[in-house]
Nucleic acid binder design. Structure first.
Length: 465
DNA sequence: CTATGGCACGGATT
DNA sequence: AATCCGTGCCATAG
């Protein structure tokens, strides 16, 4: 009908749609790269000078400051605004400050980590090799990883690479395991090897770390299962083993279980795409949402370029028009993306207020949200995918957890199992969960149990006895 | 016989 | 249209 009779218009619309959807799907890191790339490639696109909101000092260009210009509609609504990454960096630095505090707390113990290790390995080393160990230990970063390549250290010390590596190997066998690795993968491998020596290794987990690290980072469990020719559940069990027994920060072994697990998740997570913070005002405790964006607020089609279009040579015209059109599409797409993210987070914050402030998660479905926002559910999917949000408690969680109805059930299940007086069979757990308002099939309990790395009831009986 | 794990189906998600 | 996840059914181990 109308559109099919206007192929050029239809093409333009589908192109805009494709562009928009592609941008909605992008997490901040990729989006920034994309914006930079687009700016470099398209002369019609312009990133203007930045200014500041006269009231709150937020960085802006031509748009009014969203905080000051659009106060939330009702008391329950969170304050939402777009921002560049300056707050994001603030969050990161405050997290690092916390890390440092924890590390400092660790240091209050009589031993520092280097001392602790040196004491263990000194007897095993030639006197001539001890300075090498001291040098290497001094070059560990806060996670316990080597900051420079062994070859560099060898150069700095004026000794052979072989000797450095020999010392390194001794060091890596010391406690805590995983110290002196080059990266997280290597560290986890060292840790699992040390567990193997104690006879409680996990062959599959080791194979996953050794051969399928990149798939693991992508959370691509099926390809891991295929590659190693095992069932998906085996892979999940192996991951549960890794989460339980290994830490990406070997230098921080003194941490609580919670801290460790958060760290493992944090490694897999990237930087947040948005942050939710809490604050007080006269209307009580409020939530404030900050959606991070690249230069969107001051990205536009260059006015000069548009003006030049009027009197350019015929030869250049169509090429220039394409530039302008492409720039326009990009700007619109970016605005749409940011708008969608803001709306999405507004609703999430309203619905999940409890959880965000530390309470229970109330699982919602993407379809629900799509209806509330008047968007297509696939748009919600894209907006949620690959994105992470920083919560007031400084944890960075994937947006997807707000839609994961299994989370509260798993939590309840763990509670039941830790409080059980005798090992409960999956069936009995299912009954109890149902009583608590979580109707779940027995088979599902079994799956969650495996995923959490919890042994079957029969095995728990043996361990307990 | 009971508890658990494998496989496959159907609805939800991407 | 492809993929993921919860569930039911069945085989198996204890």
């Amino acid at each position: 009908m109308f559109l099919s009779q206007r192929p050029s218009l239809r093409n333009a619309i589908t192109a805009q749609l494709a562009q928009t959807m592609a941008l909605v799907e992008l997490p901040l890191d990729d989006l920034e790269a994309k914006v930079a790339q687009e700016l470099a490639a398209n002369p019609a696109l312009e990133a203007g000078e930045e200014g500041r909101c006269p009231q709150c000092g937020r960085r802006l260009r031509r748009l009014p400051c969203p905080v000051c210009a659009h106060p939330p509609a009702s008391a329950d609504d969170p304050v939402v605004y777009l921002s560049t990454r300056h707050l994001r960096e603030r969050i990161r630095s405050s997290r690092e400050a916390d890390d440092e505090r924890l590390e400092a707390a660790d240091r209050c113990s009589p031993d520092t980590l280097p001392d602790h290790i040196m004491r263990q390995i000194a007897p095993a080393l030639d006197a001539a090799d001890r300075p090498i160990a001291v040098y290497l230990l001094a070059n560990l970063d806060e996670r316990g990883f080597l900051v420079e390549a062994p070859a560099m250290s060898a150069g700095a010390l004026q000794v052979s690479l072989d000797r450095v590596e020999a010392v390194l190997n001794v060091m890596r066998r010391a406690d805590p395991p995983g110290i002196g690795a080059r990266d997280i993968r290597e560290s986890l491998l060292l840790q699992i090897e040390s567990l193997e020596e104690e006879g409680c290794g996990h062959a599959l987990a080791r194979a996953i770390l050794a051969e399928h690290w990149d798939a693991l980072l992508r959370h691509d469990l099926p390809s891991i299962a295929r590659g190693l020719n095992v069932s998906r559940e085996d892979v999940e069990a192996a991951l549960a083993f890794i989460r339980r027994n290994l830490t990406p920060y070997p230098a921080h072994v003194g941490w609580s279980e919670d801290g460790n697990r958060a760290s493992v998740e944090a490694v897999v997570c990237c930087q947040p795409d948005a942050a939710i913070t809490r604050f007080e005002d006269e209307r009580g405790e409020r939530l404030q949402i900050e959606v991070f964006t690249p230069v969107a607020n001051w990205l536009c089609v260059a006015p000069v370029f548009k003006a030049a279009l009027a009197d350019c040579s015929e030869g250049d015209r169509s090429r220039w028009e394409q530039h302008v059109e492409r720039a326009q599409r990009f700007v619109t797409g970016l605005q749409y993306r940011n708008n969608t993210m803001c709306h999405l987070l507004t609703v999430i914050a309203r619905e999940q207020r409890r959880f965000i402030l530390g309470g229970d998660l109330r699982p919602m479905t993407r379809a629900d949200l799509a209806a509330q926002l008047g968007l297509h559910e696939s748009t919600i999917s894209r907006a949620v995918a690959h994105k992470h949000v920083a919560l007031p408690n400084k944890q960075i969680v994937p947006l997807a957890i707000f839609f994961d109805r299994s989370l509260p059930i798993r939590k309840a299940m763990k509670l039941i199992i830790t409080n059980e007086s005798r090992p409960l069979a999956d069936d009995e757990i299912a009954v109890q969960l149902a009583e608590q308002g979580h109707p779940v099939a027995r088979r599902t309990i079994a799956k969650y149990r495996v995923a959490e790395g919890i042994l079957p009831a029969t095995a728990r009986a043996i361990v307990a006895g």
